[in-house]
Design a protein around this nucleic acid. Structure first.
Lengths: 337, 337
DNA sequence: TTGTAAGCGTTATCAA
DNA sequence: TTGATAACGCTTACAA
């Protein structure tokens, strides 16, 4: 229950003014070596840490960056947060992660609190696509960088991952292997990413005249639904020989269903996921999937934010990263080909 | 690029003093209904949000709670963070999550910054067990609650999950099913939880005279290592009929290895995990595992923190939660019994 | 090289 | 019921 050590305590112990302490600790202004040593020693003895609130209030930086994500349980967001934390750390910044539970009101509050004085800058991952909300963001004096914002255009810097190309490549990969009936287990309704993945699947199969609505099953990104949907697919009179799932979790569920039927992956049924979560490369057989360049994206987001903090003009920047097919062990030519 | 709206702006628009605005918005002091209405309207019109830094500096609350976790990629910590965020939310608090990447220095910095003025309170998950570090924590004027601290005793409130009992129950469960050779794939070296799980396994098998060092394999909590270790186990001259893995990910790796050998779970080999991550209940067969009551723990941690914030004496409180065996579909009697 | 003074936005105290 | 004043801890002119 020690009262917090203030700059005044350090100044007193070192026998100098608070200004000298501030200058010393922030490496600003000229300080004699002797004084500097004394101040640093005093600060260390006292365990002094500058009060970020005071610092921030004064207009100085806090070195705290806030990241607002819908949730952390999905490995995708957890990985984005991790990558951003690493990138922040090497930029000398701290990253605080805040979740909204996909509640727009919560998102607004969080942004308000953070941009209102706690954080130097903000990174919003998949922000709510509400024009009024986005308008508030645009007006913010605190630098804001968006990750994967699709929809209403803004001039905020935006780092996005495209789902379409990877999903198209994945479907084409299966088609090229010789599959003529490729099932699709969709993502959650209302997710723009899920929509893009479905659109790519439709386009790729349509291009070869192989689009069959029966092969498309609704989903919600979960493993459980992947299991059920795959069963539905396998129960079809003319079942698919390959399944493309809109998430890795869904793909694992589908693999469970296939194995549960006594079939083998990939010999009997090929399976492709989307996301490249850690388990994708660790499972056996390792999952063929599509990857967003999460690390590159987080790095870029932080570079943009650092730039903005340093006064660079980053408004209007849009970085579109392609998604990339990662071929592993769950895809092979169909039995009958 | 709007300059932030301050309390002075609101006061000006409402034609009152800043004090009146503050009182109105914080429901402190007597304000006439008429004035109150005008102030609230003005605040709304301007989109005013109090500057947390200023508020905090003045000694008032920020409603921000900081949580420091080793990392977020492991589903366990992600789940702890999620549960805590929910609990915080229903207590009217915001939860900011900070990661340390298991770097003690990073942890110290984060704690210092957070407790030094940004957050009202702190929750540290598996804090570094360094006496000096813990001493600093104990002296902190900002309330701190520990989650799963084992080791050097402190009088900080501590909410812990026991791994021993669940692990013992899991091993006994397999033994009770009739298994006489139960393999164990350990967790990471240096993790106290991993150590407890191994100890429980040793004790439970030892009690029945069924302890065989050959059946214990090193691990690191990963799925990959689970796969390899399970292979080693299956390659033994006298292989186990059941495998207990120190984490769910490891258990999934082990299941992959079993299936890869053309064996079935649980008919040929039973598998038990530890953690009860989301995938455990969603996989097929659903994984028998051991669960820490993460939600109860996070709830308790937040209740303790709220209490401390409200001036209650919570020092010395230690809440020990038992881990619990969750029997699902991956365990069955051995073939030969 | 060092220190004085002012002010960041807010709220608690006290007086009106 | 309302408002003037001071203070929280820090940093940035500006002066010495």
């Amino acid at each position: 229950m020690t009262a917090p050590v203030t700059i005044a305590d350090v100044a007193r112990l070192a026998g100098v003014s608070t200004v000298t302490v501030s200058k010393t600790l922030n490496n600003t202004g000229r300080i004699s070596d002797e004084t500097r040593a004394r101040v640093i020693q005093a600060a260390r003895d006292l365990g002094y840490v500058a009060n970020p609130a005071a610092r921030r209030l004064r207009g100085a930086r806090t070195n705290l960056v806030g990241m607002v994500v819908p949730e952390l349980v999905s490995p995708y967001f957890a990985e984005v947060a991790r990558a951003a934390a690493e990138a922040a750390s090497s930029a000398g910044l701290d990253l605080g992660v805040f979740t909204t539970s996909r509640d727009p009101a919560r998102e607004r509050e969080r942004v308000a609190a953070l941009s209102g004085g706690l954080a130097d800058g903000l990174i919003l991952v998949v922000p709510t696509d509400d024009p009024q909300h986005l308008d508030v963001l645009q007006r913010s004096r605190t630098p804001i960088v968006l990750i994967s914002h699709f929809g209403t255009p803004t001039d905020l810097p935006n780092v996005r991952a495209d789902s379409y190309h990877g999903a198209h490549a994945a479907t084409t990969h299966l088609l090229d292997l010789g599959h003529r009936r490729v099932g699709f287990i969709a993502g959650a309704d209302g997710s723009s990413q899920a929509h893009e993945r479905l659109r790519a699947y439709r386009d790729a199969t349509g291009e070869r005249g192989l689009l069959d609505p029966d092969l498309i099953r609704p989903g919600n990104f979960t493993q459980r639904r992947g299991f059920e949907a795959a069963r539905e697919l396998l129960d079809l009179p003319d079942p698919p020989t390959a399944i493309f799932a809109a998430s890795d979790a869904t793909a694992f569920g589908a693999m469970d269903a296939v194995k549960d039927r006594g079939l083998r992956v990939p010999q009997d049924i090929s399976v492709v996921g989307f996301d490249d979560i850690a388990a994708a490369s660790q499972s056996h057989p390792a999952l063929t999937t599509v990857r967003h360049p999460i690390h590159d994206m987080s790095d870029s987001a932080l570079r943009l934010l650092s730039g903005a903090l340093a006064g660079e003009a980053v408004r209007g920047t849009v970085l579109d990263y392609p998604s990339e097919l990662v071929v592993r062990e769950t895809t092979a030519p169909p039995r009958s080909s």
